[in-house]
Design a binder for these strands. Sequence first.
DNA 1: TGTGAAAAACCAAATAC
DNA 2: GTATTTGGTTTTTCACA
Lengths: 129, 129
Amino acid sequence: MDETDYKIIDFLREDSRETNMEIARKLNVSEGTIRKRIMNLVNSGIIRKFTIETSLSIEGIVLIELDSRQASNTLKTLKSLYSDIYEFSGSIDVAVRISKNTIEELNMEVDKIRDLKGVVNTDTMVRLK
Amino acid sequence: MDETDYKIIDFLREDSRETNMEIARKLNVSEGTIRKRIMNLVNSGIIRKFTIETSLSIEGIVLIELDSRQASNTLKTLKSLYSDIYEFSGSIDVAVRISKNTIEELNMEVDKIRDLKGVVNTDTMVRLK
DNA sequence: TGTGAAAAACCAAATAC
DNA sequence: GTATTTGGTTTTTCACA
């Protein structure tokens, strides 16, 4: 992670479809250099995913109350199912962030969470437009 | 916005660097069709931006308890300050999602929220690695 | 990093819906 | 009339020295 890597990340944050060539031109290096660096950033987990932001998805945060006796197992399960997980420091309660195309799909996903062993209760917040 | 557009969006959400060609192959249409449709999705504002998710930033969700008598005003203030706001349906309590480079910066931002008029209490959740 | 082959993106005209 | 395909050109990607 040097200055060049940070610049590459900044460019990709703004436009992840910018070509390697174009980034290379801006940074005065070869295309192959950009391609290899991006590959390394992905392999090392620094770049998690290339994605888009849309105006149509429903985004929700599901607050999840866990049974404290099963908390660590349930948390493990949640981690395997969702990538966007939040936790109070030092508390057993967690939240997952979910993005779906419709409110129905979001509700179905919440139902899945409610059915998980060790989940006592859930509360869903929806992103304001 | 038809079925094809939704599928294109789903593919791009998973990998915004997937080539038009590859998407075209999966949907059995020509590359030009995919390119034009993506262009239309961008121009109509449905696709807001092509971006990346990284593991560099600290992401937090701040749960905010509002004074019910000032709730609508405080919510208005929060909306002007943050773009990623979540709300329980029919409840006065909200959450904002904040992304910062360090935990210190995140805490400073939370302090700002606590100082807002009408904010009774806050609780911060931090994204798990 | 530089080179050359393969792939993808792009453009304009023709066609299909 | 709008959307899609087709064919030809430019640009980018990718592997290898």
